[in-house]
Nucleic acid binder design. Structure first.
Length: 277
DNA sequence: CGCCAGGGACAAC
DNA sequence: GTTGTCCATGGC
């Protein structure tokens, strides 16, 4: 067990429901089980200043510190916004304060968002879990419970298109298989894209079958940590049409367009859930 | 039951 | 470049 001082924005429930990660599970109130990078950890925020993880300090330093984007100050990113000029974003930030952009594995992020196309979040979670059970490595967590690591590109390639369809991927099975082949063959180096220019990384990802501008933007933001990437899904398109008819201030919000996008996404989508019709 | 979902490929303008 | 159609399947 490791205890971490955490005074910046961090709301585990908001992150878990933010649509950027699909393998967080609330095992008991306030406790989140996370599977990533082949590991499994339980997280709990005890108070305004303390976070605990069921791992040793070395594992926190090597994995979870960057995963949680510990060294970025989201309060500072929020404070850059001119609240009088953009009241809607100001309300979104107030309501969704605690969201962070995780630094997830690029390969897992790529597959997850190929799977995400034209599906809702519960369905995405289900397919990813089926995929992990199909060809990920079974492991046992600190509580003695089994989890499955996210499969490597080789494992997904070997599973084949038919095996992927058994994970309820539908027509996306072909896309996932093609991506696995491309990555396994070294036709694209996802890790290298982390340090590539934003536009170059976006174009490289869009060269893959089944990866358009939206999926590529999600991989850039959630897998490469390119914080200026701005994924436009159906919800964000509604926000822009409804609240920014005269244009959205992308230039003013650089280089953090992706962070503000997450507040808008969560606020609009949650608001829709809170106030049906 | 019908509509929608963190869309993209492809063809036809 | 823009628009329409099709794609599999589950959540609600």
């Amino acid at each position: 067990m490791t205890e971490i001082a955490f005074t910046d924005d961090l709301d585990l429930a908001l992150i878990a429901d933010s649509g950027q990660c699909f393998r967080w599970e609330e095992t008991e109130p306030g406790v989140w089980r996370i599977v990533a990078f082949g590991l499994c950890v339980y997280l709990e925020r005890h108070d305004e200043r303390t976070l605990t993880l069921t791992c040793d300090e070395a594992e926190f330093e090597s994995i979870w510190r960057s995963y949680l984007d510990y060294d970025e100050e989201y309060a500072a990113i929020r404070s850059r916004v001119d609240r009088t000029a953009d009241g809607f974003l100001a309300r979104a930030m107030d309501h969704e304060r605690g969201i962070r952009i995780l630094q997830q594995d690029p390969w897992e992020t790529l597959v997850s968002f190929i799977i995400s196309q034209n599906r809702n979040i519960p369905a995405i979670r289900r397919s990813i879990e089926l995929l992990a059970q199909s060809c990920g490595e079974p492991c046992v967590d600190v509580r003695g419970r089994t989890y499955h690591s996210f499969p490597t590109a080789d494992a997904v390639r070997a599973l084949g298109e038919e095996g992927l369809k058994a994970c309820k991927l539908g027509y996306r099975a072909r896309y996932v298989h093609a991506a696995a082949c491309a990555v396994a063959a070294g036709e694209i180096d996802l890790s290298a894209l982390v340090d590539s220019a934003d536009e170059y990384a976006l174009e490289a990802l869009m060269g893959l079958l089944g990866v358009g501008v939206k999926v590529a933007s999600c991989v850039c933001l959630f897998g490469l940590h390119h914080l200026n990437a701005f994924p436009e899904d159906v919800w964000i398109k509604r926000v822009l049409a409804k609240h920014y008819e005269t244009g959205y201030p992308f230039e003013a919000y650089a280089p953090y367009n992706g962070v503000y996008q997450q507040y808008l996404f969560a606020y609009y989508r949650n608001g829709d859930k809170r106030l049906p019709t």
